[in-house]
Every structure is written in C-alpha cells, then in structure tokens.
Simulated scan of single mutants.
Amino acid sequence: MSQEQPNNPLHGLTLEKILLRLQEHYGWDGLHAEVQINCFRKDPSIKSSLKFLRRTQWARDKVEALYISTFCS
C-alpha cells in the first residue's frame, strides 16, 4: 500500500509539515522573497498561513513547488 504514489515527492506530507520545514529553512522573510504571498510578510504565523494556503490553490501550488525544488532535487 505504501507504493501507491512512488513518484510523488509530497506523498505522506501534510501542508503543515511542508510549511514548517520551509519556514525553518528560509524564515518568513526568505519565504516571502521566494514566494511573494502577503501571508508570509504581514504578521506571519503558521496558523494564518495554513488557513490562507488551504483556501487558495494557486498559492499552495507555489509553496509545494518551492518545497520540491528545495528539498527533493
């Protein structure tokens, strides 16, 4: 069963885990520089960023692409 998505680097990762790892790696200022989303610049927090990213697919796609390019290549 664990081989259902062998080519998906995000398989098994929650959005929260992705965001936490990116925030630890880049910091909020670095995240905003890489992905220009206001939730990373204006009073950033994990909770508010998750809320925005769960509602906004284009922003989530950019964050997931940054995770892949940073940690999976």
Score class of each variant (00 low, 15 high):
residue 1 M to C: 07
residue 1 M to E: 10
residue 1 M to F: 13
residue 1 M to N: 09
residue 1 M to G: 13
residue 2 S to G: 15
residue 4 E to L: 15
residue 4 E to S: 14
residue 4 E to Y: 13
residue 5 Q to E: 14
residue 5 Q to A: 13
residue 5 Q to G: 03
residue 6 P to Q: 07
residue 6 P to R: 07
residue 6 P to G: 10
residue 7 N to Q: 11
residue 9 P to W: 07
residue 10 L to F: 05
residue 10 L to K: 00
residue 10 L to D: 00
residue 10 L to M: 08
residue 11 H to F: 15
residue 13 L to Q: 10
residue 13 L to A: 06
residue 13 L to N: 07
residue 14 T to P: 11
residue 14 T to H: 11
residue 14 T to Q: 11
residue 14 T to F: 10
residue 15 L to V: 03
residue 15 L to M: 12
residue 16 E to C: 07
residue 16 E to K: 15
residue 17 K to D: 13
residue 17 K to N: 12
residue 17 K to A: 14
residue 18 I to Y: 06
residue 18 I to H: 05
residue 18 I to R: 05
residue 18 I to E: 08
residue 19 L to K: 01
residue 20 L to S: 09
residue 21 R to Q: 15
residue 21 R to H: 13
residue 21 R to P: 00
residue 22 L to T: 00
residue 25 H to D: 04
residue 25 H to S: 06
residue 26 Y to G: 02
residue 28 W to H: 09
residue 28 W to A: 05
residue 28 W to F: 11
residue 29 D to Y: 10
residue 30 G to V: 01
residue 31 L to M: 14
residue 31 L to C: 08
residue 32 H to Q: 11
residue 32 H to E: 09
residue 32 H to L: 04
residue 33 A to Q: 12
residue 33 A to W: 02
residue 34 E to S: 14
residue 34 E to L: 06
residue 34 E to A: 14
residue 34 E to C: 10
residue 35 V to C: 12
residue 35 V to P: 04
residue 36 Q to R: 14
residue 36 Q to G: 09
residue 39 C to V: 15
residue 39 C to K: 08
residue 41 R to L: 15
residue 43 D to I: 09
residue 43 D to V: 11
residue 44 P to H: 12
residue 44 P to Q: 11
residue 45 S to Y: 10
residue 45 S to G: 12
residue 46 I to S: 06
residue 46 I to L: 11
residue 47 K to L: 08
residue 47 K to A: 13
residue 47 K to H: 11
residue 48 S to C: 10
residue 48 S to I: 10
residue 49 S to F: 01
residue 50 L to G: 03
residue 50 L to N: 06
residue 50 L to C: 07
residue 50 L to R: 02
residue 51 K to A: 13
residue 51 K to T: 12
residue 51 K to I: 08
residue 51 K to Y: 14
residue 51 K to M: 09
residue 52 F to T: 01
residue 52 F to M: 03
residue 52 F to A: 01
residue 52 F to P: 00
residue 53 L to A: 02
residue 53 L to I: 02
residue 53 L to S: 02
residue 54 R to K: 15
residue 54 R to G: 08
residue 55 R to Y: 03
residue 55 R to K: 13
residue 55 R to I: 00
residue 55 R to T: 01
residue 55 R to A: 06
residue 56 T to Y: 01
residue 56 T to W: 00
residue 56 T to D: 02
residue 57 Q to N: 09
residue 57 Q to A: 11
residue 58 W to P: 01
residue 59 A to P: 04
residue 60 R to L: 03
residue 60 R to W: 02
residue 60 R to V: 00
residue 64 E to Y: 04
residue 64 E to A: 03
residue 65 A to W: 02
residue 66 L to W: 01
residue 67 Y to K: 01
residue 68 I to S: 00
residue 68 I to M: 03
residue 68 I to F: 00
residue 68 I to G: 00
residue 69 S to Y: 05
residue 69 S to A: 12
residue 70 T to I: 05
residue 70 T to V: 07
residue 70 T to W: 04
residue 70 T to C: 07
residue 71 F to A: 07
residue 72 C to I: 08
residue 73 S to P: 08
residue 73 S to L: 12
